[in-house]
Nucleic acid binder design. Structure first.
Lengths: 308, 308
DNA sequence: GACATGACAGCAACCGTTTGCATTAATGAC
DNA sequence: GTCATTAATGCAAACGGTTGCTGTCATGTC
C-alpha cells in the first residue's frame, strides 16, 4: 500500500510496520518510472554541458550531482561537444524524463532557449536570460580586475584571447575588458572567436604576439595554458616578456609553471545553486531569477611588470 | 498510434504519414517513462564513479555518454566520493530506472558486487570479477614496464606509492611491480594505502624519501603530481635526485614540469567498451566476459638515471 | 440504545505507452 | 456471387504505482 510511504499519518502504525517489514523481506523498491507516470514528477534532473572533459565542468557536475542526490534526485549528464544543435536535441530528448534541465554555458540563441523553456523547466548557468532563472559568475568584474591588475603592472598594450561564439561569458568578458581598458587608457586588441581549448590557445600564439601586446587575458585557463605551452616552445619568457591571465582557476592552473594568474570562478557553488534554483517552487523561482556569484583575481606567477 | 513508430510495416503508408504529420504539429514526444513501464527497458544507463572531479574519470564519462547516446541511451552519472557504502546505495537507487549500471573502479567487495548483480545488470570497469562482464586496463603490464624502465636507468631501490584500499587496480599494480622488481633483483618498498589524490601524494613525500628509494612508481598521476609538488617545495630535484612515474596519463601530466613519465591507460576506450558490453545481448555478454585494454609506458622528463 | 462521527482499509480509476486480439474492409479464387 | 484470405485498423488490457472515494467498524454522545 503506497500510503505507507506517501502519507504515513493516514495509516495505522501497526499496519504500517507490517507493510514495511513484508516490503523489506520481499526486497521491494518502488519503481520511480511508474510513480512518475501518475505524479508527473520524475525526481530526475538533466545537466547539459558543452564538454565533460573540459576541466572547468567536472567540479560543477560533481557539486550538482551531490546536491541533487541530497534532495533525492538523480542526474542525467550529457555532453554537447560545443554544438548548439546538439544542445537543442538533448533538451528535447530529456524533457519528458526530467523535472528540469540545467543548461550550462549554452551556445544556442536566446530565442531557442525561450522556445525550449516551454517544454521543460530550465535553469541556465553562465548566461543571463530575461525572466529565466539563471546562475552566473561575475566574470565582468573578474575581467575588470584582471585588466586593472595588468595596467597596474605598467602594461599598456593588451590582448584579449576570445572564447567561443555564442558564449554569454565571452561577451561579458569582452565588454568589461574593453570598458576597463578604455578607462585606464590602455589599448586592447580582441582576438577570436576561438574554441575554448588548450589547442586553440596554443594555435593563437602567433596571432597574440603579432598584436604587440605585452599582456594577455584569455577567455579561460585552458586557452591560457595552451598559450603558455606555445610560448614556452618558442622560447618566450612568461612573465618576463609577456604576462598571461586566465579565467576559471581550474586545478591545472596552480600546478603548471609558471603558476597561472587567473580569475577564480565558484563552479561548485554554481552547480549547487543551479540545482537549488530548479527545485524551488515556481513562485520563489520567479522572484530569485538571477543569482550572481562573485569571482576573485588570484595573482600567481604568470603576470609581471611591463618589460618596456 | 504507437505502431507507427514501433512496427511501421504493419501500417498503411498513408495512415503512417498522416499520424506522423499530426504528431509533428502537436509537438508530440513519446514518454519514455511510460514506455519503460510496459517494455521493461528504460533506455537509461547508470554510471557510477568514485570521484567525478578526479581527472581520470571525465574522459571516461564523456566517452561513455557519447557512446550511449549514439545507441539512443541516456546516462545517469553519480559520484560515490570513494565511499563503498555509497556505491551500494547508488546501485540500489538506480536499479529500477536503468537497464544496467557501469561500476567504475569499485571499492566494494566482490561479494557485494555478486549480490547487486542480481538486482540489475552490471558491467564493471577496472576490476575483474569472475563471471561478470568487465573492462580492465592492463595495468599489470604497465607497472611491469615502468619498473623495467626504472631498473634500466640503474635504479635498485624503488618505492611504490600505493592507492586506495579496495581498488583492484591497486592490487594488480602492487602484485606486478613486486614481481618485476624481484625478477630484476631490485628492492621495492610498498607504501599505503592512500587516497588517490594529489594531497595524499604530497603528504606521502617524506615517507617516500625515508625509504631511501631513488625512484617511485605512484598508483596514479594525481598522486605522482602531488609528490612532485612536495618534492619541489623541499628542493628535491626530479629526476636528478629522484625519478617519479605515474599511471593514467591524465591531461595534466604533460603540462606540468617536469613532464611526467607515466603509463597511459585508454580511458575513453574503456568507457565505450563498457557501454557496448552492457548493451550486448545476454548470451554475447557471457562469452566476452572480460575485455582487457592495453596500456603503454610514456617516457617523459620525470625519470632519469640513478644518481648514485 | 440509536445515531453521528472519525479512523482506517480497500477498491478502482488513472498516468502514457505497447501489444495481443478482434473487427472490418479489401482482394482474389472458384 | 460466395467464400477464404489477408491487410489494416481499433479496442482494451497491462505495466506499477498514487489517490479519491466508498465502506466498515469502533468510539463517543445524548
Amino acid at each position: 500500500m503506497s500510503r505507507t510511504f506517501s502519507a504515513p499519518h493516514l495509516v495505522n502504525p501497526d499496519t504500517r510496520s507490517r507493510v514495511l517489514s513484508t516490503a523489506e523481506s520481499l526486497g521491494y523498491r518502488p519503481n520511480r518510472a511508474a510513480r512518475a507516470l501518475i505524479t508527473g514528477r520524475t525526481h530526475n534532473i538533466g545537466l547539459i554541458v558543452a564538454d565533460i572533459a573540459n576541466p572547468f565542468f567536472p567540479p560543477l557536475i560533481k557539486a550538482a550531482e551531490s546536491q541533487a542526490r541530497q534532495r533525492d534526485y538523480h542526474l542525467f549528464v550529457a555532453d554537447t561537444n560545443e554544438d548548439p544543435i546538439m544542445e537543442e536535441q538533448l533538451v528535447q530528448a530529456l524533457a519528458k524524463q526530467v523535472d528540469g534541465v540545467l543548461l550550462c554555458s549554452p551556445r544556442m540563441s536566446n530565442d531557442l532557449i525561450e522556445k525550449l523553456r516551454r517544454e521543460v523547466p530550465l535553469v541556465v548557468v553562465n548566461r543571463a536570460v530575461d525572466g529565466l532563472p539563471a546562475v552566473v559568475m561575475d566574470v565582468a568584474n573578474g575581467a575588470k580586475a584582471a585588466i586593472e591588475h595588468l595596467v597596474g603592472l605598467g602594461h599598456h598594450d593588451l590582448a584579449l584571447l576570445g572564447g567561443p561564439r555564442g558564449s554569454w561569458t565571452n561577451r561579458e568578458i569582452r565588454r568589461s575588458a574593453m570598458a576597463a581598458a578604455k578607462l585606464a587608457g590602455a589599448n586592447l586588441t580582441v582576438l577570436g572567436p576561438h574554441q575554448p581549448t588548450e589547442a586553440a590557445g596554443a594555435a593563437a600564439c602567433d596571432a597574440v604576439r603579432a598584436t604587440g601586446a605585452t599582456a594577455v587575458l584569455a577567455y579561460n585557463d585552458l586557452m591560457a595554458i595552451g598559450l603558455l605551452e606555445a610560448l614556452h616552445d618558442r622560447g618566450v619568457d612568461v612573465p618576463g616578456e609577456l604576462s598571461v591571465v586566465g579565467i576559471d582557476d581550474i586545478m591545472l592552473s596552480r600546478l603548471i609553471r609558471p603558476k597561472l594568474t587567473t580569475v577564480s570562478t565558484p563552479t561548485a557553488a554554481a552547480g549547487r545553486a543551479a540545482v537549488d534554483m530548479l527545485l524551488q517552487h515556481d513562485d520563489e523561482r520567479r522572484t530569485n531569477a538571477l543569482v550572481t556569484l562573485q569571482t576573485e583575481l588570484i595573482v600567481r606567477d604568470s603576470t609581471g611588470p611591463n618589460p618596456h
